[in-house]
Design a protein around this nucleic acid. Sequence first.
DNA 1: CGCCGCATTGACGTTCGTCAAGTCTAGTGG
DNA 2: CCACTAGACTTGACGAACGTCAATGCGGCG
Lengths: 263, 263
Amino acid sequence: MKEPPLPAQSAPTIRLLPTVHLHAVNAQTMKVACSNCNLRELCMPVGLSPQELARIDEVVATRRKVKRGTTLFRSGEAFESLFAIRTGFFKTCVNAEDGRDQVTGFQMAGEIIGLDGIVNDRHTCDAVALEDAEVCVMPFDRIGELAREVSALQHHVHRIMSREIVREHGVMLLLGSMRAEERLAAFVLNLAQRLNARGFSGSELVLRMTREEIGSYLGMKLETVSRTFSKFAEDGLIEVRQRHVRILNAAELQRIVNQQSAQ
Amino acid sequence: MKEPPLPAQSAPTIRLLPTVHLHAVNAQTMKVACSNCNLRELCMPVGLSPQELARIDEVVATRRKVKRGTTLFRSGEAFESLFAIRTGFFKTCVNAEDGRDQVTGFQMAGEIIGLDGIVNDRHTCDAVALEDAEVCVMPFDRIGELAREVSALQHHVHRIMSREIVREHGVMLLLGSMRAEERLAAFVLNLAQRLNARGFSGSELVLRMTREEIGSYLGMKLETVSRTFSKFAEDGLIEVRQRHVRILNAAELQRIVNQQSAQ
DNA sequence: CGCCGCATTGACGTTCGTCAAGTCTAGTGG
DNA sequence: CCACTAGACTTGACGAACGTCAATGCGGCG
């Protein structure tokens, strides 16, 4: 799966995807260290002493490559480890007994997945790679041991879980009280902001997911997603070409998000 | 706020609300112990040694009474403690800049609130008592210290946070893919099941929240909540008299929840 | 006893889902 | 290199579900 370059009309070349390449190793899993990882400030606590950092290297047991379209874990599987995304892009989704399916989030480099598995020692959702990906495998019992010694790590784990709870509050607000345009505007801006925080363009993005997956996440049908994209494009807020989106008027998108639906 | 008895037609008197009364003390806050709390198995890890249990008593600094309609904490306030609900009933809600408001959950005895505040040392939602309530105040830094020594407590904290994440996944599924009847059926069954787990009737419940609050939680308008209740009553699934609800046909309600909306 | 907030119910309108064509694009194989 | 195909996306027409607005009922509390 090669990385499609931006369409020709794109401005000065801005990398659209992480270019984190270590010494390429062809194994499925490999040894690795946080201490020299350039995503460290995203997934590890800051202000650690070199000694502490060295100890935390022990937490990351291995890395694992996940091919696009395959699952990192699946609902019902035994929970053993959290995963820190090094490269690539995931979706997580829960499935009801009746076959219904809900995307609960999209995760990118530096983010942690698997937190749902802690409570019952079983994963309760699927994590699917939307592009070829690589994750750091962090056995949860080792995280626990180390957190007991390094209080900064303990607090970091708490913060990561709390952040996920707060994020989901935001999704509940979106699903519970926003209309289609507001949802999609919020979604695009959120993606752009997260990519921007990782050093990529805050205005050009390549969606890694289908319209249907966006719709599942936002509680709308794929046709409505498509129509709403088209409407934004007509209004000059964005350019859309398949999965390539360019934000032309972020301020107006933000206004749409914030506008009370009672109009 | 006295406890309204069940309507006369109710079967053998089943207590509808927790009757947890310790030595009544009229102070706003008071000293307390987990070791002899009858909600222990709900909010504390199981299988602790007496020594460990004694140490955990230290975590609970004080109790605090919260009058109906007042807030336990408010979005923006400094985060210092988690709260374990001893008696009473709360809602938590997030508010967007534009004044929109979303109920993110309803909490009852034995449940923990405040987890959202950990990530930024500030609360990010409001917790409002829907009836007079009493909570155990657990300073978070003391939880942290103790969790470093008592690994069962550490794991328990992780599990509580993970459980909240999983619960919110369920809410996202509900908001993202269910229709009004399915949402309300799921809501009623969930409430009944949680009350049942606390020793109350699993079929008679007194709603502590307004139709509008239910609607906010479920992503629908109060009129739709009311209409859907009426429809369930017409169909003989429940009896509704204001906030008193009696479940007549739980199996059919469950079928409604599980039915694929594509019909 | 009367008031006020909450709940119910009806009529109507909007938004979004459904169904159905049809188009585009990336990937495949000749 | 080009044709072919399958999956993803777009667009339109229509209808159902739910929101909106408004009137009325009910009950708890002062």
